Amino acid sequence: MDTSISRKDFLTKATFIGVCGMLTGILQTQKQPAAFDPNLLLNVDEGEIYLIGERKGRVTIKIGKQKNGIQTMSLLTEDIGPGDEIPVHKHSSEEEFIFIENGTGIFTFGDEEYKVTAGSMALVPRTVWHGLRNESEENLRMVFGYTPAGFENYFRAIGVKPGAPSQKLSSEDWKRINSKYGVVYRD
């Protein structure tokens, strides 16, 4: 009986097991609330929504340090429209976990590109280049988060609430905000 699995299947399973283990460890270190906190249960349309840049990428902060007091992780979603992308970048202080809920795209990890589909996940160590491009005709929804928590404030700094006027950031604004949150974009 052949019990071998492909490298891709192994990496997918290993990443999933690693993320689950990481999240279990994170949650075990949190101070447990005395009673259920309704802010920790959100439906699909709930959370803090920000529209990012001229592309109006929709980021929803589900769980974060500022609102929920969770210090060790955050959880967000982003809807990426057809032809849109998250430019290749890296974080100096956070690990990022990414799960593709629906859609297809091209994920950059380091210097390589990989096709991703619904159910794909990635664990991105700090200082590793990564980005995501939607090359399909449908929205791509990404569920993602950071450990430790705090980087979700970046989206508050660069985005606007739905209905608010667009924010025009100068190159100096971008440099200041990117420096504050330890993010570097690849040229």
Score class of each variant (00 low, 15 high):
3 T>I: 09
8 K>Q: 10
9 D>R: 00
9 D>H: 03
12 T>M: 00
13 K>D: 00
13 K>F: 03
15 T>L: 02
15 T>Q: 05
16 F>C: 01
17 I>H: 05
19 V>T: 04
20 C>E: 07
21 G>S: 03
22 M>L: 09
22 M>P: 01
23 L>D: 00
23 L>T: 02
25 G>I: 04
26 I>K: 01
28 Q>L: 14
31 K>F: 13
33 P>F: 08
34 A>M: 15
40 L>P: 08
41 L>H: 11
42 L>T: 11
42 L>K: 14
44 V>T: 13
46 E>R: 12
48 E>T: 04
51 L>D: 06
52 I>R: 00
57 G>E: 15
62 K>C: 04
63 I>C: 06
64 G>L: 06
65 K>R: 14
66 Q>N: 12
66 Q>F: 13
67 K>R: 10
68 N>D: 15
70 I>M: 15
71 Q>F: 12
73 M>Q: 12
74 S>E: 05
75 L>P: 07
76 L>T: 08
77 T>S: 07
77 T>D: 09
77 T>C: 05
78 E>P: 01
78 E>A: 05
78 E>R: 04
80 I>N: 05
80 I>Q: 01
82 P>T: 09
82 P>C: 04
84 D>H: 10
85 E>H: 08
86 I>D: 01
87 P>Q: 00
88 V>R: 04
89 H>Q: 05
89 H>M: 13
96 E>M: 12
97 F>V: 11
98 I>Q: 15
101 E>N: 15
104 T>C: 11
104 T>Y: 11
105 G>L: 11
107 F>W: 15
108 T>S: 09
109 F>H: 09
110 G>V: 05
122 A>G: 07
123 L>E: 02
123 L>V: 12
123 L>H: 15
125 P>I: 07
129 W>I: 04
131 G>I: 13
133 R>H: 08
134 N>Y: 06
134 N>W: 05
137 E>P: 03
140 L>D: 11
140 L>Q: 14
142 M>R: 14
144 F>A: 08
145 G>K: 11
146 Y>L: 12
149 A>N: 11
150 G>R: 13
155 F>N: 00
155 F>S: 05
156 R>H: 11
156 R>N: 09
158 I>P: 03
158 I>S: 01
160 V>M: 03
160 V>K: 02
161 K>P: 04
163 G>R: 11
165 P>C: 04
167 Q>T: 10
168 K>W: 05
168 K>N: 10
168 K>E: 09
170 S>K: 00
171 S>D: 14
173 D>S: 01
174 W>Y: 04
175 K>S: 06
175 K>C: 02
176 R>H: 04
177 I>S: 01
177 I>N: 00
186 R>T: 03
186 R>V: 02
186 R>D: 01
187 D>N: 11
